[in-house]
Amino acid sequence: MLGKGEAAGQAHLHKDDDGGEQPSGVVKLISAEGFEFVVDKKAAMVSNTLRNMLTSPGGFSETREGEVRFPEISTPILEKICQYFYWSLHYSSGKETSEFQIEPEITLELMMAANYLDT
């Protein structure tokens, strides 16, 4: 589940539908254990917290460096979140109709993260 290839492979899957005024490029999300997920900015911005982080007028370090560390989100949870970002983009554009699967054992932790990320 935690294979690096898997995460990196997922990152660039959907580069093609970069459209409109949405920012292009990618952003690196780093889990508590230091595992890095590279996702499209567009996908990351499914989370309102990440959207604010990456667009806030303050010129914060995240905006400059294009990476965000989450010392309180574990790797499996962050991976699930990244999957959700892409699922959500596809679902809202009508390309995806199946439900997003959540394993019961991570539900609570995932909900906490979702609350934090405003997703």
Partner: peptide
Amino acid sequence: MGSLVFEELY
């Protein structure tokens, strides 16, 4: 400003 980390503050 560059040393402010949004995630920490949030």
